[in-house]
């Protein structure tokens, strides 16, 4: 188990890195973990005793049904339940609604899986910081290998232009609920 535990976060990182759609590289081969069956992995461990993890918290939140659907479409469930710690900036359903009409539907199409995954990973930071603690940062390194700006305005904290409106602890990290979808910078 110990060994597995070491392996999974590393694989997780490799996976997160390997699928970076924003900066595709020729030698990027699909990681062998991509062959994981849809029902295999830590997301499918039966455990009703531990405190809920990031994915379980998100699934229980009615305000995050679009986000959860996107995570499932991008096959990112297992990444959200690993040892972490992870900080997830979770746009509420209304934030997705504010995107141009048809954007979400497009992203959920199988052929856009990589683009969707890239956007979702831009909402994830390896690490776990409270909203107050985030005030110490100027930027964060996100799971899609890009950086996101942190701004403090009065008592509010904005990450990639999205305002943190609530925070929920999970067993393997923290969810900061945000009011906007954070779009990865295109360079």
């Amino acid at each position: 188990m110990k060994r597995l535990k070491i392996l999974i976060p590393i694989l997780g990182i490799v996976l997160l890195g390997a699928c970076n759609n924003a900066a595709p590289t020729q030698e990027a081969e699909p990681s062998p973990t991509n062959t994981l069956d849809k029902t295999e992995g830590q997301a499918f461990v039966e455990d009703d005793v531990s405190n809920p993890n990031l994915l379980q918290v998100a699934i229980k939140s009615a305000d995050h049904s679009t986000l959860v659907a996107a995570v499932q479409a991008a096959d990112l469930e297992n990444a959200l339940v690993n040892a972490g710690p992870l900080m997830v900036f979770a746009p509420v359903n209304e934030a997705f609604d504010k995107l141009p009409a048809g954007t979400v539907e497009d992203l959920l199409k199988p052929e856009n899986k990589d683009a969707l995954a890239n956007i979702l990973k831009f909402h994830v930071t390896p690490g776990k910081y409270t909203k107050d603690f985030l005030k110490k940062f100027k930027k964060l390194g996100q799971a899609n290998d890009q950086s996101v700006k942190v701004e403090v305005k009065g008592d509010d904290v904005y990450v990639g232009g999205a305002k943190i409106i609530a925070s929920v602890e999970a067993s393997n990290g923290i969810i900061h609920v945000v009011d906007a979808v954070m779009l990865p910078p295109t360079e």
Binding site: K2, K5, I6, P9, G12, I13, N82, A83, G84, P85, L86, P126, G127, N172
Partner: peptide, 16 residues
């Protein structure tokens, strides 16, 4: 011994 001495987590608990 006088000095500044580190301690650490011995179980690979997380990505950090």
């Amino acid at each position: 011994k006088v000095g500044v001495w580190p301690f650490y987590c011995t179980d690979f608990c997380s990505a950090l």
